[in-house]
Structure formats: C-alpha cells, structure tokens
Design a protein around this nucleic acid. Structure first.
Length: 419
DNA sequence: AGTCCACAGGAAGGGCAGGCGA
DNA sequence: TCGCCTGCCCTTCCTGTGGACT
C-alpha cells in the first residue's frame, strides 16, 4: 500500500521559505480537506446511542427492577456484573435517563446519583465519596477538614428534605471496596432507617464476578437483593454495534468491510469488549486521516492496536510517583538481564542499589511490596505469589509492556535513573 | 511430621500538610 | 490561633503461608 503523510508532503514538496508559511499552508489544507469522520463523538465512551444493541433482556430486567420508584416504592438494591465493555454502565445510564423522563411525566420525585468509584480524587476514600454524593445534590463541601460523621449527617438531612426516591449508582464498586473496605457499604445499607421521608436504593456495578463473595454477609444480603450479569459480546454482535456507530461516525464507505470485521474480531478476542472495539476504530480513523486517506483499511487497525497499547503504557508511566518509577526501572532492568520473570527480593536489591547510586532515599521492603502491587493493579506488570518451598514464598513478577513500547518506556524512566 | 525460608500482607501508628470551626 | 479532623505516605511489628528439605 502506498502511504503519503500530508505532513511529509508539505514539508518536502513545496518551496516554502519560512516555518510559519509552512504551518499556515498545512492548516489551510487541513481545513479545506474533507474529514473522514462525519461525527467523531459517536465513537467516544461518553456517547449514548438511541438504541443499545444486543442488550434487550438486560435493559428490560433493569427497568423492571427500578420501575417501582415510579409508584413511590423503594426499588431493590442491585449488583450488576460483567467484564469491561459489556455495556453495564451505558445500559444503566440509559435506563436511569428513561426513568427520569417517566418520572417527570408521571409527577414522581426521583433523584439519581451516578459516581464512578475508580476516579482518583473523587471516590477513593470514604470522605471523598460522601463529598461527591453531596456535590451531586448541589451541596458544596471542603476537600478535607470535616469529620466524616458530619458529612453523613448532612447527606441524610439533605436527601430527607423531600419525599423522594433516590437511586445511587456506584460504578466500579470493587475499586472502592478494595480501597476503603466494605464498612462504608454497611453504613449505606443502614441509610433507610435514618430517613423518614425519602427512600434510597443502590446499584453497584463491577467487572469482578466474584465481588460479592468478598463482602461482609450483612452487606451482601442487603445490597445484593437483585443481580444482573452482562455477558461479553461475540464477534457478530460487536460487528452490529460497530456498524451502528460507523453509520453516523464516518462518511459512507469510509470503513472497508474487511476493516470492520477485523475490528470486531480483535475486540471479541479481548473478552468481547465493545469499548475497545470503538477505541480501535476511532484511532484507526485518525491514522487514516493523518495519512490523507479517505478509507480505514485493515492495516490501520494493526497500527491502531499498537498505538493504543503504547499510549496507555507511556501515559500511565509518566504519571507514576518517583519511587514507583524507581521500582519499575529495577523490574525492567532485572527482566532484561535475567529474562522472563523476576522475584520480589531481587527487585528490592536492585531498587536499593539504584536509589543509593542516584542519591535517592530508599523505602522499606514492605512499602516496595505495596508499590509492586500498585504496578500490578495498573496492569504494567503481572504478579503471582509462588512458594519456592524451603526457599520461601515470594512473588513472581512479569512485565506487561509490549516490546514496541519498551523504548518509550525506558525514555520515560531514564531521565530519572542512570546506570 | 516437623522445620525452615523469604517473603506476603494486615494492623497500628507516626509525621506531615491542609482545612474547618470555635 | 488552636485543636481537631482529614488524606497521604511511610515504617514497624507481627502473623500467616506453602512447599522443599531434613
């Protein structure tokens, strides 16, 4: 295939004496050229389609569980399970928005609160989650400084002012419980006994199918009154979803049927993740556009896959704190030297040496163990606890950084640490 | 069967910064 | 201003673990 980047074209082919002229010409050309996209936002995670394909059963089940709110009854608490990109969040949001519409026309007083518990600095502590819930009902509270029980009381008082049904959605609830434990959830289960006018229901969304097993029995029985499982999409279903979005996102004929099939197949292999499929398609479109082409072809999807992986890794690494970078630097070095997998003890030894060499303070093995866990949670590495019998119990660490991103990863770490 | 190793990981608490209310 | 509360990062201390070794 012959590729021609418009950037290269303008830089080399024309006699333009100054940089500003060059850039100006590029922008004019860019504006005058027809975009491959018709409406790019249709491919974003936040976009809510009018119709969600292949989720009729789940939507009906969800609607029937929440419907009693329209008759001033408290709907059952609910857990929604399913892997990433199976439509849990989007279906919940759609049903809630329809419920709000129905409430408006029927005169029911329903308030819905949606909180993504995985958002850093939003819901990673009990205080912040309560503050976020208060913000959702337009009550401003300081980022820190107040006792937690004051926030609880304020929240109870505010929501109990009117006779209303409140539905609180805690998305990625497993991340919250991992961070602050399930005591908080227990407090929430007691919420209705504190209220005289309002009624509160909870929807917990998680991609961890065994999440409820890790909960306290009281919390489990109270919050898990109903359960809905979202199964992964298969390749055919993903293809339908992609087709639906392509029709509005791209100009007609901008995505070849082969590219569409390939995109669906890649995402189907990765646990039927529709979000991943849409990302692949969006980035592939951007790549095609950058090359000045009017069609997305299979090859762009390969490039898109690499780019998404690469961006995810390098962006995550850039944001890491210095000590975590030092630990990762040691893991990469150990893996490159020893090949394959390394053990916690070896990593700590290398990490300590690196810190001494670079005049950095070094942390205790206990803390380094936690940092290794954090890298694991970010999927930069994978760890597995193994027993080496008489030679102790340790963690085996494997790098998850693709070879294609290794150079950039090192560049992101090397300014901080030298040999 | 008991011992031992090299950790994993929970619990408790210190120190610091930042904010609130009296 | 001061006491109290929070989050955050960290250390210290401790118990638990599982399979090789004796």
């Amino acid at each position: 295939m012959e590729k021609q980047s418009s950037l290269v074209f303008y830089g080399q082919g024309e006699d333009i004496s100054t940089n500003s002229k060059n850039i100006n010409n590029f922008f004019s050309h860019y504006v005058s050229k027809k975009s491959i996209f018709q409406d790019k936002k249709v491919l974003s995670h936040a976009f809510m389609p009018d119709e969600i394909l292949h989720r009729d059963q789940e939507l009906m089940r969800l609607s029937s569980i929440l419907a009693p709110a329209l008759r001033h009854y408290q709907p059952s608490n609910l857990f929604i399970y399913g892997s990433t990109g199976t439509g849990k969040t989007i279906c919940t949001k759609l049903v809630l928005s329809q419920l709000n519409e129905a409430a408006k026309s029927s005169g029911s007083n329903i308030k819905t609160i949606y909180i993504n518990c995985k958002m850093k600095k939003v819901a990673d502590t009990e205080y912040r989650l309560l503050a976020q819930m208060l913000n959702e009902i337009n009550i401003e509270v300081p980022d820190t400084g107040l006792p937690t029980d004051v926030l609880y009381r304020r929240f109870f008082r505010e929501i109990d002012e009117h006779d209303q049904n409140i539905i609180i959605v805690l998305d990625e609830i497993d991340a919250l419980v991992r961070k602050i434990g399930d005591e908080f959830l227990y407090n929430l289960t007691r919420i209705n006994s504190e209220l005289s006018k309002s009624r509160v229901s909870f929807i917990g969304i998680t991609n961890n199918l065994s999440f409820s097993n890790s909960l306290d029995a009281r919390v489990k029985s109270s919050l898990g009154e109903e359960e809905i499982i979202f199964h992964p999409y298969n390749a055919m279903q993903l293809k339908d979803i992609l087709k639906q979005r392509i029709d509005t996102a791209f100009h007609p004929g901008a995505v070849t049927p082969e590219a569409l099939s390939k995109c669906a197949a890649i995402a189907a292999q990765e646990h039927g993740d529709a979000r991943r499929a849409l990302d692949l398609l969006r980035v592939a479109g951007e790549i095609a556009e950058r090359y000045g082409l009017e069609q997305v072809i299979e090859e762009h999807l390969d490039m898109s896959e690499k780019k998404i992986d690469h961006d995810r890794v390098t962006e995550t690494i850039k944001m890491l704190p210095g000590q975590t970078k030092a630990v990762l630097y040691s893991i990469i070095n150990m893996v490159e030297t020893n090949g394959g997998k390394v053990l916690t003890g070896d990593v700590f030894g290398h990490y300590k040496e690196t810190c001494v060499r670079n005049n950095l303070r070094y942390l205790t093995p206990r803390r380094v163990g936690d940092l290794i866990n954090e890298l694991d949670m970010l999927s930069i590495i994978s760890t597995q606890v193994i027993s080496k019998g008489r030679y102790g119990r340790t963690r085996e660490i494997k790098l998850n950084i693709p070879d294609s991103s290794m150079d950039h990863t090192k560049k992101a770490l090397f300014p901080n640490f030298g040999e």
